[in-house]
Design a protein around this nucleic acid. Structure first.
Ligand SMILES: [Mn+2]
Ligand SMILES: [Mn+2]
Ligand SMILES: [Mn+2]
Ligand SMILES: [Mn+2]
Lengths: 218, 218
DNA sequence: CTTATTTTTTAGTCTAATCTAAAAAAATAT
DNA sequence: ATATTTTTTTAGATTAGACTAAAAAATAAG
């Protein structure tokens, strides 16, 4: 049995280390999970003991095949629940993370299969992140950061890199929503801010904002 | 904060002691929860410490007002999730209990409010049990055990007393479903079995079955 | 190549929730 | 009224997960 805490560690290692393939440092995990390095060392030993992780003292952790699959399954559940909360229960996209953080640990294959069907087999969550299938495979969506687009280029807003409530609320306030067509009009050399056209209105966004918006082109 | 384990104890005490008002014995709780009496003693002390229960050594436990409200809230969540699983995800009524046992511990007021609305404010769960409102009040449904009905009487099948999977599956096999009209034709003195009419077909049910079926009359 | 700094691990505590075995109290039976 | 049985509590251990402080290893600077 994989505990809730183990699942949270697996998810973090998965995210930090390119799907858990690259070795991740103890400190990186501790920082991400807001816990102490010594706690991470303990847990990482346990994951290795259970053959969910590869761990060599002082050399970081990566995930085994089983570990990766387990992590992907948790991520799948997290994102499906987020879709449920937004599409069915009318949560807004900045309110769902905490609740999904709990729901992702509910243990029932049947539940997730039926939820997936009920939601009509969504491929992305409310933040534009891909939902892995049961085998842990992601549909590769080609997307590019707005900050990397040249002026004149345009694309559809399909995802956010930062999905903190504050950023999502900022986007709401600016009336920038997933699915909108965005055109890059001008990039200011001085501060890297960008002038864009969204919903036929002009907007100026900071460099920080531009590095957190994904566009899909053509 | 009330832990998951504490919530489970509160729920059990609530069910065993007439909504937690009557004192419940340590052994009764232990048996119900399939744990040891010594574990119950420990937990009960903790609940008393947190002002969720009234506990006097050797005299059993009852719930405080806050304890009762907390228990009712967990039961509310459990039953709302059961409705969701059956009505929306198409689980059958014998499959939902275990999953609801986990879902009932998800912490989010907003989630439950929105779920309640999404389900159209149901008053009973898939087993005919009343769903308490946010204040912990149950809509009193007048229902009577089939075993207590005289021959000639009839009523609508509105609930089960035993909601074990095996009993529910037995009812499915006999094509007896919630909402069916049942008429008592004859009670056999010898073994207390009952001949009934359901869906215009004759059926003979055991005494045990009869004591687990609730009818609503007129 | 040493010394200093940073990172990681170990050692030792702590809390929550469980258990077994033994002691104490309460209930039942002679 | 005493002895027996049952119930409940206590005492002591165990496991998971987290923490602090100290030791050890790895990395970076001079
Ligand atoms: Mn989580
Ligand atoms: Mn998301
Ligand atoms: Mn439960
Ligand atoms: Mn039920």
């Amino acid at each position: 049995m994989v505990t809730q805490s183990e699942e949270n560690y697996l998810k973090t290692i998965y995210h930090l280390g390119k799907q858990g393939v690259e070795a991740v440092s103890t400190n990186a995990i501790a920082e991400q999970m807001e816990t102490k390095a010594s706690s991470v060392t303990d847990m990482v030993k346990k994951l290795a003991e259970k053959d969910l992780a590869n761990y060599v003292k002082y050399q970081g952790v990566s995930l085994t095949k089983v570990g990766r699959l387990t992590a992907a399954s948790v991520i799948r559940k997290h994102r499906l629940w987020e879709v449920f909360l937004v599409n069915k229960l009318k949560f807004s996209w900045d309110e769902v993370h905490e609740v999904a953080e709990q729901l992702e640990h509910i243990k029932s294959e049947q539940l997730i299969d039926k939820l997936d069907e009920f939601l009509d087999f969504p491929k992305v969550d409310p933040h534009g992140d891909a939902i892995p299938d049961k085998e842990g495979n992601f549909a590769k969506i080609s997307k590019k950061l707005l900050s990397e687009c040249a002026s004149g280029e345009e694309g559809i807003f399909v995802g956010v890199k930062d999905s903190s409530a504050s950023f999502l609320q900022y986007l709401d306030k600016q009336h920038i929503s997933l699915g909108d067509k965005i055109k890059i009009l001008h990039r200011e050399e001085f501060d890297q801010s960008v002038e864009i056209m969204v919903n036929s209105s002009l907007l100026n966004i900071s460099q920080k904002t531009a590095t957190n918006i994904y566009l899909q082109q053509k």
